[in-house]
């Protein structure tokens, strides 16, 4: 294995808890809640809402009424939901991972050990970027996919108990197409995330203490100062532009699919509508690569990439001689 491989592995060793165990536990809780809901519904025998983000009621209802197509739409929605729910913990894990990426080892002085090895600062910083934008999302998506497999087993078991054949519904759903199309969103997420990655890593490399405060308070201060200038009648930027196009992209770009809302696709609403109407093709259509990769034709993606690359380059430069922290 080459140096970069070892460096990324090193990140995984240090952050196994956030990268691997967090998505696993969130998925286990989701599946457990779904299972509790099903058992409760069976025992009470009425329409008890099944909690846990999986549209179980629709799946069950359509399976019972024999409409395989509608049930398949529910299954597809469940797969997307299992993946989407992991984006929330992933956001927090990545946010604090990146803020600590070039700061924590300076604080505990282990940077002196890492720097005693023949590894360039560029390679070190790059390995942390790769761990954040590719490794962590890939692990989360693999966990979500395994969780969906478990959910399918639960569906089959439930169906067998009720004397229903679940296979037509499963056959009508699109697990493999979704697997492929959702995997393809990860590189787009990565590009979209670069300004946030760069912003957080810059403060992580720069701060002598409390990188979190710098990274969060500076944008807040800029927004407040801008509004104040506006109130005084001085030239200022539009508040919504500053929030949506600058602050949001510097702090929340690492949220997978953050660009979906931005590109005018109301994801949640469309998936819900699609699974209600049994339009099995619709969910698939949302993640059509031609739609997703259409983002690459927008200037704002590339402006963000440039900003992100510059910030990462500055962080790399800072990493060369910034070793001490004030704590």
């Amino acid at each position: 294995m080459n140096t970069m491989g070892w460096l990324v592995k090193r990140e995984y060793w240090e952050h196994r808890g956030g990268f691997l165990w967090t998505p696993i536990w969130v998925s286990v809780v989701m599946l457990a809640l779904t299972l509790f809901g099903i058992v409760t519904a069976e025992v009470v025998g009425s329409r008890v809402q099944v909690q846990g983000g999986v549209p179980w009621d629709r799946i069950a209802e359509h399976l019972q009424s024999g409409s395989a197509g509608l049930a398949a739409a529910g299954l597809d929605a469940a797969y997307v939901a299992l993946a989407a729910i992991l984006c929330i913990p992933l956001f927090f894990v990545l946010f604090f991972y990146l803020l600590g990426s070039l700061y924590d080892d300076r604080r505990d002085r282990s940077v002196l050990f890492w720097k005693s090895l023949p590894v360039t600062d560029t390679a070190t910083v790059l390995s942390k970027v790769l761990a954040a934008v590719l490794l962590a999302p890939l692990i989360a998506f693999v966990v979500a996919t395994l969780a969906y497999v478990v959910l399918l087993l639960i569906v089959c078991a439930w169906a067998v108990v009720h004397g229903i054949n679940p296979l037509p519904a499963i056959a009508a759903s699109h697990p493999l197409s979704l697997l492929w199309r959702l995997t393809l969103t990860i590189p787009v997420d990565a590009l979209w995330a670069l300004p946030t990655v760069g912003w957080l890593m810059f403060w992580s490399a720069f701060a002598r203490s409390k990188p979190f405060l710098w990274a969060v308070l500076v944008p807040i201060f800029v927004v407040v100062a801008n509004s104040w200038l506006g109130m005084l009648g001085a030239p200022s930027l539009s508040r919504s532009f500053l929030l949506d196009q600058v602050v949001f992209r510097l702090l929340f770009g690492i949220m997978p699919g953050a660009w979906l809302g931005d590109s005018g696709l109301d994801l949640g609403e469309r998936i819900r509508a699609a699974s209600n109407n049994g339009e099995t093709g619709t969910i698939l259509a949302i993640f059509d690569p031609s739609v997703v990769y259409g983002l690459l034709a927008t200037p704002k993606l590339w402006i963000g990439v440039v900003v992100g690359v510059i910030l990462i380059a500055v962080a790399t430069r800072l990493r060369r001689t910034r070793i001490e922290t004030s704590t």
């Binding site: 282990s110 002196l112 005693s116």
Partner: peptide, 15 residues
């Protein structure tokens, strides 16, 4: 750093 090694002090191996 391929040719130079250093031990800064006791506390620098990551915990």
């Amino acid at each position: 750093m391929e040719q130079v090694c250093f031990i800064a002090d006791v506390a620098v191996l990551p915990r």
